[in-house]
């Protein structure tokens, strides 16, 4: 009985934030002490096509940015992780990739800011894209470095010894084996970019309106209802993507 109560309390604790967002996005004139007797309205949701179409463009911008960064970072990360196998003192070189990931994104943005201003990249979408990429590639590199264990390296060597060309060995053996890692890297890199606020705020100086910047913008305007709508837009694809990747990666792992 006590365990059941505890479970219910924890589930409430976990579900409350999402419930609060859904509620805030569906009410207006939310005056204290109204709780359930609020004015329910789908005005904010229907405004996505009109009054709040800025949020729709923010969603598209975030989606485009996160997808392109995820693809580029995973590609570069895989390439670098393979290349580092050939470099003497691999672990020292790899250690460089740890730093950007360890510090808060906003601090990374603060470090880069002066150079981005100097090169005229501050306040531009391209600038934010490059800054985010510089943050995400090292992460992809670290993640994908774990793929290259002794077994994989031996398989590659064996294929070469048996007469396969490097490209054949890569496309026929390595890439199929790397699929779960690549899938995971694509998902993680997408999420880092999708959630990113600190770098975008500092490098974008408010001119690059991604969804996270949109949430903060509406919060600063004391408009929690539209901010909640933006927050739901931010959370919902991740839930869907998580579910899909869970199924896909799960299936791929089973195949491997």
């Amino acid at each position: 009985m006590m365990q059941k109560t505890l479970n219910t309390l924890i589930i409430i604790f976990l579900a409350l934030p999402l419930a609060a967002l859904l509620y805030l996005s569906a009410v207006k004139f939310w005056v204290y002490p109204d709780l359930l007797r609020a004015h329910f309205s789908l005005e904010f949701w229907s405004g996505l096509g009109g009054t709040y179409s800025g949020l729709t463009s923010s969603f598209a911008l975030s989606l485009l940015m996160a997808t392109s960064i995820s693809l580029t970072a995973t590609g570069l990360g895989f390439f670098f992780s393979a290349f580092l196998l050939l470099v003497p003192g691999r672990s020292t070189w790899l250690a460089l990739s740890f730093f950007p990931y360890l510090i808060a994104p906003v601090s990374f943005g603060a470090l880069l800011q002066t150079y981005f201003v100097r090169f005229g990249l501050s306040g531009s979408t391209g600038g934010v894209w490059i800054a985010q990429l510089l943050f995400v590639v090292p992460y992809a590199n670290i993640l994908l470095s774990t793929f290259w264990n002794r077994h994989i390296r031996q398989l590659y060597q064996q294929a070469i010894t048996l007469g396969a060309r490097p490209l054949q060995a890569l496309s026929g053996i390595i890439l199929p084996l790397a699929k779960p890692w690549l899938g995971l890297s694509l998902l993680q890199c997408f999420l880092i970019s999708w959630y990113e606020y600190g770098i975008t705020r500092l490098i974008g100086i408010g001119k690059v309106q991604t969804l996270t910047v949109g949430v903060m913008h509406y919060l600063n305007e004391a408009n929690p209802h539209v901010a909640a709508l933006a927050a739901i837009l931010l959370v919902s694809p991740v839930v869907l993507l998580g579910a899909i990747s869970y199924i896909v990666v799960g299936k791929l792992s089973l195949q491997v």
């Binding site: 976990l14 934030p17 967002l21 606020y197 949430v215 909640a228 959370v235 998580g242």
Partner: peptide, 25 residues
């Protein structure tokens, strides 16, 4: 198992959104 599934939910929350929700709670 029910609780286990619910535990996945906060993983979809960026810190910004979590901060916003808890502020209004």
């Amino acid at each position: 198992n029910t609780l286990r599934r619910w535990l996945l939910l906060p993983l979809a929350f960026p810190p910004l959104v979590a901060g916003f929700s808890w502020y209004y709670l």
